[in-house]
């Protein structure tokens, strides 16, 4: 998964997500989740890391299960329980459907996020999806600012505490200095990028061109054509 072209991977996984959204079939969802986990493990993601990432997902899935179980659509509702494929125990199946959706979307999301290098992704989006270069590199530069933001948040909080002033996590007094700083940082960063020759419309060369290989096409065809056709035939 790591060597797949990120643009192809993105389109393919998005297609699978949309397909699952239209299917309302918990077994497809659970299959997508299990395949995602398998691919993540095969891509070298450590089991411990994966379990940590899955913890909030499992909690959200459990929450969705009980919501779906408790609030099954009645016959008078616009969306009725008999529209679901599994009608044996619609309450239970509705809960499983909601749970499996959370797991499937999270699995597919993690599959993309944890197996894609961000620089490789931006280069690929720029080349294959024609993302404007000012947006692509602006995105990368902004990414570099996030760790500074976390530290600045702590610093600002410490400044208030040092003067005995109580602030809440999202208090405007705390966020105002952060906003001012982020504007200042973005200005400094854009000047630094410009001084290194970056321009939104000048011709650039590419140190490692991102190409589309046969395996990328196969993966895309599988996800965007074969899976939907199979789904159509089996439903």
């Amino acid at each position: 998964m790591r060597t797949l072209n990120p643009a192809c991977k993105f389109i393919s996984l998005l297609a699978v997500t949309l397909l699952l959204a239209g299917l309302k079939d918990p077994w497809w969802n659970l299959s997508a989740f299990l395949v995602s986990l398998l691919l993540l493990l095969l891509s070298g993601i450590r089991m411990r890391t994966l379990l940590l990432y899955l913890l909030p997902v499992v909690l959200a899935a459990a929450g969705m299960f009980f919501t779906g179980y408790r609030f099954t659509a009645e016959s008078a509702m616009p969306v009725r329980s008999d529209t679901f494929i599994f009608q044996g125990n619609s309450q239970l199946m509705n809960g499983i459907l909601q749970l499996s959706r959370v797991l499937a979307y999270a699995g597919l999301g993690y599959l993309f996020a944890l197996t894609t290098d961000r620089v490789f992704m931006v280069r690929s989006f720029q080349k294959q999806l024609h993302l404007p270069q000012v947006f692509a590199y602006g995105l990368l530069a902004a990414w570099g600012i996030f760790p500074h933001m976390a530290l600045e948040y702590k610093r600002t909080k410490a400044a208030f505490r040092a003067r005995g002033i109580r602030v809440y996590p999202v208090s405007p007094a705390l966020l105002a200095p952060l906003l001012v700083k982020s504007v200042r940082w973005s200005e400094e960063l854009s000047i630094a990028m410009e001084s290194k020759g970056f321009s939104s419309n000048a011709r650039r060369t590419d140190s490692s061109p991102v190409r589309v290989h046969a395996r990328d096409i196969l993966f895309t065809v599988f996800c965007c054509i074969m899976l939907p056709v199979t789904a159509l035939l089996t439903h």
Binding site: R118, V119, Y137, L140, A141, W143, G144, E188, L189, A192, M193, K196, G197, F198, S199, A202, R203, R204, T205, D206, S207, S208, P209
Partner: peptide, 22 residues
């Protein structure tokens, strides 16, 4: 003053900007 993630990528970013052949 950096846009990329590693020293290597930052230097390559500069070289790409001035259209140095690969």
């Amino acid at each position: 003053q950096f846009c990329m993630d590693t020293v290597r990528n930052e230097i390559l970013f500069c070289l790409e900007n001035i259209a140095i052949p690969q």
